[in-house]
Design a protein around this nucleic acid. Structure first.
Lengths: 127, 127
DNA sequence: GATATCAGTATCCAATAAGATACCGGTATC
DNA sequence: GATACCGGTATCTTATTGGATACTGATATC
């Protein structure tokens, strides 16, 4: 199914539209990281907050609501005490795995590149 | 090289960080669409504006400057009259092709899904 | 009784992204 | 001379995002 990125003008236009569609539902700073955090399995609110490090509860709450609306996560309340709430990816979210893998791998190599650049710069300065 | 998304806690943390790294340089509404528009070859400012449909020149200009700074595009001025300015992807940008392909394909199927959903809804309402 | 945890809310504020609209100087065309 | 195209800028405003800080009510633990 995976056609390559071809140079036809029309296809290019459709590709741009498709990418904008994706970004429309998943854009912003947090949605993809949240989904990525939930890939290994369901997490509770506070656990998610820890996994995402510097997200505030307000933002996390807002993002989770949006993700729930768009059917990327489900929210389940357990009547323990104190109550626990679990967020879990839907099957639909799992269709994002390839996207996430590519974004992750690119991030890895980008960080390496940045590191190598600054290393080279430091070396040049020493001379 | 491509490892799967595994459930180890530490790897998950690193994956989240990597995705956030990617989003840090390429986040926002326009950067990925712009890069996608340039994949078939260099375009001039006005051509890009047309390809992106509803981007204003101010935003486009700003985004292009950022992309140039981060070495995703090069800007070449030709002394024609009136001057033409071409924006072209760098080799580094081409390392994003897989990312773009996945985002595009996901966008395609997402749009299809949305369409099917509303079709089903309309059918249900008719009954 | 004091303190802590859980899953958030409430309030207020700052930064940024995004957009509308108009405009610029230079050239070419009509 | 009027108009249009090119690659943008300038100015202003709005919307969205993000964040800090404090707090809530229920329960459990010390």
């Amino acid at each position: 199914m995976q056609s390559s990125v071809t140079p036809s003008k029309e296809e290019c236009t459709r590709a741009i539209a498709a990418i904008r569609d994706t970004l429309y539902v998943l854009g912003g700073k947090w949605k993809l990281p949240i989904i990525s955090a939930l890939i290994e399995g369901p997490l509770r609110f506070k656990e998610l907050q820890k996994a995402l490090e510097d997200i505030t509860p307000k933002i996390l709450s807002k993002e989770l609501k949006e993700l729930e609306l768009n059917e990327f996560v489900t929210r389940t309340v357990y009547a323990t005490s104190p109550v626990t709430v679990e967020y879990e990816l839907t099957a639909y979210s799992h269709s994002l795995e390839k996207v996430l893998v590519e974004l992750r791998d690119w991030g890895f190599q980008h960080r390496k590149r940045i590191k190598d650049c600054s290393k080279a710069r430091r070396a040049a300065e020493k001379v």
